[in-house]
Simulated assay, not measured.
Amino acid sequence: MATSSTVRAEERRSAILAIVNREGAAQLEKLAVDLGVSPMTVRRDLDDLEAEGLLRRVRGGAIAISGPRLFGERRAVRARAKQVIAAKAKTLLPTMGAIALDASSTVAALAPALNSHAGLTVATNSYENFTAIRSAQNITAVLIGGEQEPSTGSFVGKLACDAAESMLYQCFFTSASAVDADHGSSEVSLAESQVKHAFARRSRQLVLCVDSSKLDATAIATTFDLTEVHLLITELDPADPRLDAYRKHTQLL
């Protein structure tokens, strides 16, 4: 019974987050009516979502968090979900060649798994991810330089794109600010989106790693159509109904 209750709470919070991200804001009382629960229940859900860094509480409801965020802020958000995603993603690591990791904190959770994949070359446009990769034994870490995006700490711009396209990758592991079944993945920064396109153009396989809080939402800059994505990884079971809108476009893990 407790497990069923937990699942319902997770689904309710995902629904709340989707509404807030889509509308930009939501009123507590209206959420309670729409979801068929008490205002007290919604208030607890909003408090929990704020504690995870997924929205901001305001008087009478909540507003969406917009704009790029520093890596340190993003790393603490939905940490358990990122670990589940990383556990799935590590099964896709090749035994040789090169892979690319974007500047996301979600993909950063994959770094510890590289210790068991000696011989790989791993490229990223994130100094934080580069530092984590470099600590792995017998891994060649490559930092894609360029202009530093001050609000995210990642490297972007023409130099970053040119460097990203100078190698051939077995797989590109990337995340997104938001994912929508109709519009695909999107970012809060056009510059971030451009570097991801550069990595993808040189990759045999594109793997999109996002936690469920990113689903059913859009950001500013379009990045990948879901038909371009070879595999979508979330912390959810692939059979979860929340993924129904996505399974017709791409493979799920």
Rank of each mutant, 00 (worst) to 15 (best):
N125Y: 05
L93R: 04
A123W: 02
E235K: 08
A15L: 11
D34K: 02
L35T: 01
V84G: 02
R201C: 03
D34W: 03
T140V: 12
A87S: 15
R13D: 10
A198M: 01
A89K: 05
H197I: 06
A25M: 11
T41I: 08
A239Q: 15
L54A: 11
L35Y: 04
H117C: 12
P94N: 03
E23I: 00
E187D: 15
T131L: 15
S104T: 13
P112R: 10
I16S: 07
E10K: 13
F173S: 05
R8E: 05
R78Q: 12
C171R: 14
G146D: 09
R59T: 07
K248V: 15
A191M: 06
M1I: 03
R43I: 00
S166D: 11
T234I: 09
V37E: 00
Y246A: 09
V142H: 03
E29D: 08
I99R: 03
L208W: 00
L55T: 02
M1G: 12
I19A: 15
G60N: 14
L206C: 05
G146I: 04
R57M: 07
I99P: 04
A26S: 10
I85V: 14
A217G: 11
L70E: 13
D237E: 07
A100C: 02
Q205V: 08
E11A: 12
A141I: 03
E29F: 03
L243H: 05
S126F: 03
T223W: 04
D182Y: 01
Y246K: 08
D102K: 07
G119R: 07
G60E: 11
T174G: 04
R44N: 01
M1V: 06
D216F: 11
A2Q: 08
A198W: 00
D182N: 12
S151H: 14
L159C: 08
D182S: 08
L93E: 03
A87N: 15
L159A: 13
L17V: 11
I133V: 15
A198E: 01
S135F: 13
T124E: 01
D211H: 14
T234Q: 10
T223M: 12
V42F: 02
I144K: 00
L17H: 10
D225Y: 08
V77G: 00
